[in-house]
């Protein structure tokens, strides 16, 4: 499946950008950019997505390297947890009022 924003007509490949805003937090997807190689992708990502100290670390990933679930199979692919609300702590209501539980 082609990645949105990636096409043979683009002269440079597409990169997805992830920024860690602070130590102790995950890298979060912030956007994408086109760049000829990984070195320039990382530099462009810094200039484009961290002009106001938004991050302490940047990842760039070639968009073509990402495998995604099929958007058309949305329902079927994610239906396993449906009806399994016993997986949530809030399902167990009999212990209400008991402390530290």
């Amino acid at each position: 499946m082609t990645t949105p924003g990636d096409s043979a007509a683009e002269i440079w490949p597409l990169w997805e950008v992830f920024v860690r805003s602070n130590r102790g937090l995950s890298h979060v997807h912030v956007g994408s950019l086109h760049a000829p190689d990984e070195t320039l992708a990382v530099r462009n990502a810094r200039d484009l997505y961290t002009r106001r100290s938004e991050g302490v670390s940047v990842w760039v990933v070639p968009a073509a390297a990402i495998t995604t679930s099929d958007p058309d199979a949305k329902g079927a692919f994610f239906e396993s947890p449906a009806g399994k609300n016993y997986r949530h702590a809030s399902y167990y209501s009999k212990s209400e009022g008991v402390k530290h539980l």
Binding site: P4, S7, I11, G31, S32, L33, H34
Partner: peptide, 15 residues
């Protein structure tokens, strides 16, 4: 650049 990227996700090319 943010906006060109958004348009590119719709199949428009930068060129």
């Amino acid at each position: 650049l943010y906006l060109y990227s958004a348009a590119q996700t719709l199949g428009a090319t930068r060129d």
